[in-house]
């Protein structure tokens, strides 16, 4: 009997995938959490952050962009990969200006939550304190590029989900930044507060005005449970049933 299901292993555990699924999608469905920042369920894979890098048959590959294939031997939770992930998150922290203590996104921020999950107490790299722009021109939305991690979620969401193409990257290397499709200001675009691109930012770089600090400390997304717990708990629930 022929089956078109794909079978491979992650850290020794057998995982099944449908043809066309990426490693990350198959792992999610199987209740195995592979840490990620730029990947999002509603968006096409992009491979910007590289945090989901796993070892596929001994070679590093981004789990979000690599299709699952039969017989793959994948390592996810190894000491080396965890340290690589820590290093990437630490670089994101020092390359921006991430002042968690007054950030509206604190507690609901995926970058911060990833640092919590990886138990990062201090970055190994020196802080850069770069000079970044803020765009508060839009009546309902603010862009604070101090917090941007260049994940391209807003670029993809605006283009593919909102059909607006409000955002694009400009510059290269450390000059790279998310820019907007107008002469200068976000208020000159057709961006709307109800757009998918408004809510999809994993950090506090795109925020809705007048909504900050609405959720009290203790009730925010990552106050009690690490990021990825939802995926891991879905598996635990399925097993106990």
């Amino acid at each position: 009997m022929m089956s078109d299901r794909i079978t491979f292993t992650i850290d020794g555990v057998e995982v099944q995938a449908d043809p066309g699924q990426t490693i990350l999608q198959a792992a999610d469905a199987a209740g195995v959490y592979i840490p990620r920042l730029c990947a999002h369920k509603e968006l096409n894979p992009f491979g910007a952050c590289r945090i989901c890098t796993v070892m596929v048959n001994g070679r590093p590959q981004a789990a979000c962009t690599t299709p699952a294939a039969n017989g793959m031997i994948i390592e996810n939770e190894t000491e080396e990969l965890t340290d690589n992930r820590r290093s990437i998150v630490e670089m994101l922290f020092v390359e921006g200006n991430h002042y968690c203590m007054y950030c509206e996104k604190s507690g609901n921020c995926e970058l911060q939550a990833m640092a919590y999950r990886l138990s990062i107490m201090v970055p190994r790299h020196p802080y850069q304190f770069p000079d970044k722009d803020i765009d508060g021109s839009h009546p309902d939305i603010m862009i604070d590029r101090n917090r941007c991690i260049l994940c391209a979620r807003c670029v993809r969401a605006s283009r593919d989900l909102d059909d607006k193409n409000v955002f694009q990257f400009v510059g290269r290397g450390k000059e790279k930044k998310v820019w907007i499709n107008s002469e200068a200001k976000l208020s000159d675009t057709d961006m709307d507060v109800t757009d998918k691109a408004t809510d999809i930012c994993p950090v506090g770089a795109i925020i809705k005005k007048r909504t900050g600090y609405e959720i009290p400390i203790g009730q925010r997304a990552y106050d009690h449970k690490p990021i990825g717990s939802d995926i891991e708990e879905a598996k635990a629930t399925a097993e106990s049933n």
């Binding site: 922290f93 200006n97 991430h98 002042y99 968690c100 203590m101 802080y127 304190f129 770069p130």
Partner: peptide, 15 residues
């Protein structure tokens, strides 16, 4: 705390 670890609020003058 944050100021010892990353400079914190006083470090806002760094740029």
């Amino acid at each position: 705390g944050e100021c010892a670890i990353c400079g914190g609020i006083p470090a806002m003058r760094n740029n």
